[in-house]
Design a binder for these strands. Structure first.
Lengths: 170, 170
DNA sequence: GCCATTTATTTTATGCTTAAAACATATCTG
DNA sequence: CAGATATGTTTTAAGCATAAAATAAATGGC
């Protein structure tokens, strides 16, 4: 490997131009394309097969993992959406009888939301289909690809979180 | 390799349970987490540094690559958003003087949109910062990670597109 | 116990997004 | 060339999303 050449090129550039990050940019664009492609397909199929929206499905997926329910703030954090977003979303799901809402026993400011029995039943049906759809969309990957990507995405998640938190904490 | 064992297990399962696709599901959730983390950071910084929104930036990015502009339909397809979505988005950018809009010479239904000079100038400033942000968010990856992931995402893109198009073409 | 700060939620204003319907123009087919 | 079909765009109705401000309750320091 010609490290000298790399170093010389890098130094030659550093004097007049900023570092080149085209590879990372291309990676990001491709990641985004894949995410949009998959998310769009899931969104469409959820609507066509179950007359349900993706945000509602995502919300139910979080509640499905917490049998005792959770507060709105906790839900917002896990879903990575703003608090205000949940107010209306939860309201509609409560109206539809899929989510229950009760005051927190320990904190009079907070509300605990949870899946109703009907909500859990509906979610489970959708989740089974959803799992199949994801597998179908990723059918072109072999186990090695899945494992490799899982590992690299783990690193990316850490890296991105560190950079993102720098903005907020300070 | 014990193919027999694999086959037996698979057959034993097939009788009572559907195939297990947990790995793909986990991969999808992690991919989504990364995408949301990065996209959210970019969105916030665009607003804080340039008082600009991500959809507007994305639109300008597409136009930056087509110096002669393109029609709304072509733009919608490249951005992977609905046509109706663009009407208002373009309208606001035209108002802001960043995008121009003219009738297509060859098709009286169509309009061609393009960046104005001011729009191009503004976009270039933002794009430089954006490239740095992406590199920072992905700083935890080495070149090998970037290359590996790029390759696997290429496979995923093909795979997802095939599955997605199955729904629509029919 | 009181005041400052933090935390939980809602409200408001604005913008993004979609699907579906409506409309206009192009293109194809017989 | 006429009618059918396809394509380009806008409109409509509904829902999703954010930031920022407002409100309410909890917590911490003194």
């Amino acid at each position: 490997m010609s490290d000298d050449q790399v170093t010389l090129d890098a130094e030659a550039k550093a004097l007049e131009a900023p570092a080149d990050h085209k590879d990372e940019l291309r990676l990001w664009l491709r990641l985004l394309t894949c995410a949009n492609l998959i998310e769009g397909t899931v969104r469409r199929r959820l609507r066509e097969s179950f007359d349900e929206t993706l945000p509602r499905f995502d919300l139910m997926a979080q509640l499905d993992r917490a049998s005792d329910g959770m507060t709105l703030s906790e839900l917002a954090q896990r879903m990575m959406v703003s608090n205000g977003n949940l107010t209306a979303l939860v309201e509609r799901l409560v109206e539809a009888g899929q989510v229950s809402r009760r005051a927190s026993p320990s904190d009079r400011r907070a509300q605990v939301v949870a899946l109703t029995q009907a909500g859990r039943r509906a979610f489970r049906r959708m989740a089974d289909a959803h799992e199949e759809w994801i597998a179908e969309l990723m059918a072109g990957l072999n186990q090695r690809d899945v494992d490799d990507m899982m590992r690299i995405l783990g690193k990316m998640k850490l890296s991105a979180r560190r950079a993102a938190e720098k903005d907020i904490v300070s």
